[in-house]
Amino acid sequence: MSDPHEHRTPVALKGLSADDPHLQPAAPNPQLVEKVIAICFVLGALCVAGFGACYWINAQAWKLGATMGFGLFFLGVGLVAWGKYLMPQGPFVEERHTLANSVADRDAFAAAIVERGGGVVQRRKLLGGLLGGGLGIFGVVAMFPLLRSLGPLPKTTLQHTDWAKGSYVVDQSGRRVQVGDFAIGSIATVFPEGTQDSDRGQAVDQTVLIRVSNEAFTTMKGRESWAPKGYVAYSKVCTHLGCPVGLYEQELQLLVCPCHQSMFNVRNGAIPQFGPAPRPLPQLPLYIDSSGFLRSQSDFHEAVGPGFWEHQ
């Protein structure tokens, strides 16, 4: 990249005699340094050739990397040493000229813009305004289709999950959960039947199902029927940033978010008792049907996952 204003930098036409100290190598013993550099270059060349050989025979990654790495390293060290120890040691100096131009130059530049441009615009204010307005409208309008085509509008999709009245609770393999299936202290990730393999099911509907012993469980007011036979279900989507809250500590009765360590009290409606999460994990109301299958009474009563503006 050359200096575009080089004409303002006068070039010094000056000679130095060959024995000038500025032109001597910095190394006190250049012969030795030359040998060392030669060894570096030979090693580098050998390694780089080795890299070619390794590539040819399809050797393991570390052999490729080692040969290439050492090759480049030795070539580089040799080249730096050449420049540092054997080339003219200097120091050399260059003048630094002020970048600013004379006041007259500046005025001429400003005048060119202000007087020519200003004159034109002032005489044709209407045209200028119309052009500006037109371009402005285009600028705003151009944003609309661009932004609008990128994705659908959220509508109410963030507020609901696929859990509905009577959804069968199934595990990750799609098996319906029956009342006797879980021993006390068990945990599983469950989904409303049919969504366990879909992206939305995985991301939105995922729910942790825990079977707590009756004596360890306190039901919150209004949720007395939500956890039949000790089966309690909470949304697995953390209310902080949406990580799956899959970390259950059985003796502490805590659900912990593996990302930022929010701790939710399983006994007490998953109220956060430590960490950055602001809201409890929504609880899924469950019931056991006449055949002994676990099913949901309804959807979650609030939006699952992290907070957003429209979160009720």
Binding site: A61, M68, G69, L72, F73, L75, G76, V77, V80
Partner: peptide
């Protein structure tokens, strides 16, 4: 230029090991 090679070399060695 030598330093460019050294940066490449160190990166390749990290990538290798």
């Amino acid at each position: 230029t030598g330093f460019l090679f050294v940066v490449g070399g160190i990166t390749a060695l990290l990538g290798a090991f």
